[in-house]
Design a protein around this nucleic acid. Sequence first.
DNA 1: ACCTGAACACCGTTCAAGT
DNA 2: ACCTGAACACCGTTCAAGT
Lengths: 224, 224
Amino acid sequence: MGRRSDHSPAELKGLLLDRATAIIAADGVAALTARRLATQTGYSVGTVYNVFAHLDDLIVQVNARTLAHLHHHLTAAQPRAPDAPPDARLHALAAAYVAFTTRSRHLWNALFDHRPTREVALPPGYAAQIVALFALIEAPLTEILGPGHEAARARAARALWAGLHGLCSLSQTDKLALISPDSLDVLVASFLDDYLAGLRVRAATAPDPPTPAPPRRGSKSPQF
Amino acid sequence: MGRRSDHSPAELKGLLLDRATAIIAADGVAALTARRLATQTGYSVGTVYNVFAHLDDLIVQVNARTLAHLHHHLTAAQPRAPDAPPDARLHALAAAYVAFTTRSRHLWNALFDHRPTREVALPPGYAAQIVALFALIEAPLTEILGPGHEAARARAARALWAGLHGLCSLSQTDKLALISPDSLDVLVASFLDDYLAGLRVRAATAPDPPTPAPPRRGSKSPQF
DNA sequence: ACCTGAACACCGTTCAAGT
DNA sequence: ACCTGAACACCGTTCAAGT
C-alpha cells in the first residue's frame, strides 16, 4: 500500500536497529528474525531487506552500537581521580566489563556469537571501536611497564582482554565449574592481580629495548 | 519400508554420530541439519529423531567425543620425561591446545557455540571430562604453588583455561588485531610466562594456609 | 520512490501409517 | 520393533507488482 508511514530513511533504519536491539537484549540473537522484526515495527519483511543487505548486516550494526555502549560504560567506570594508580584503574575496568557481560548478556554474546560466514562489510568505525577499547587497557599498562615496551604492552593488553573474555564467556555456560556464581568477580580480580604481578617481574628481568630509536622522518606521530 | 538395513541400535547411533562429526568438522555446526544427516546416512529424518531427542542432544554428544579427543591430544603432547619442569609441561599443554583449536576448528567451536536453551541432559561423564581437562593443568600448578593452596590453585587453573580459551577464540575472529596469524603461539606462550611469574610472586608474598588441617573424619580422600 | 507479500528453498520436529 | 515421509509451523531472501 505504498509508503506506510512518514519515517525518513534514517528514521526507519534507526527504528529497525532499536527494535532489533530490543529483541536481542530480551531473547538473544537467535530470536532476531526478519519477520518478527517486521511485525514489531509495522513494516513488511521486504522492507527489512530494503534497509539491510541481510540479517548479518543488521546484527553487525547492532554490534557496533553495543561496542559504543560498552566503551561508554567502561569509561564511566574509571576512577574520577586522574592520578589513580594503574592497578586500581584496571580493576575498575575489569569489574565494569564483568558487570556489562551480565547486565547486557545477550547483546554481549551477539558480539562474539556471529562468525562471519560471507564477507560482511564491517560498518565504518567498527575496527576503530575495538582499538579504542584496547586503548582503555593500554593506558594503565603504559604506566606499569614504563614507556617503550610497545611489544610487551601490546601482548599484555591482548592477554588481559582475552583473559577477561574467557572468564566471562566460560562462566556463562558453567564451563568453569565455579562454586558460587558471584565468585566470577573474585576470579577476575585475582587473575588481574596475578597477571600484573607477573608483568612487573618480567618487565624488570627481561627488558625490551626501553626507548626505541626516535622516528627519523617527519614529525607527525606514527600511531596511525 | 521397514528396517532399512542391518544396523544394530548401537551401530546406527555410532553411524549418525560419525557422520554428524564429519559434517561439523567440514562445514561447522550450522551446517548440521537433520535432513542432511539423514540423506548422508541413507536414513530418513524421522530416524534421526528416533535416536536423538533433538539436534541439541546430538550436538552435545558430538561435543562429548570432541572433549575426549581433546583430552587425548593434550595428554599425548605432554613431555615424556615424567620429571619435566612444570613450566615446560604447561607450555606443552598450551601449545597442544592451540594446535587443536586450529586443526579441529569447527569441532572446537561447537563446544562453545551452543548455548543450552532448553535443558539438554549432558551425557554421563561430560562434567567428568571437563574436570579431567582441568586436572591436566592442575598437576603442574601443584608443583609450582606447592601443596595446599587449593583455592589459589583452583583460581589459577580457571584463569589459565580461560585465558587460553579467550586468546584462541578471539584470534579466530580477528578480534585481537593480531599482526601475523602465527603470532598466536607467541602470545599464548608469553601470557603463560607472565601469568606463572605472577603466580609465583603472589604465592610467596600472600601465602594461603600452606597445609590445611588434615581431614578429621574417615580416611577416604574428600576429593569427590 | 518506497513498500508489499507471494514465492522459493530451506529449516526442526512430530506422528500416523506402513512393513 | 523399526522406519518412513507427509505435515506443521517456521526460517532467510528475492522480486514482480502495487501505489
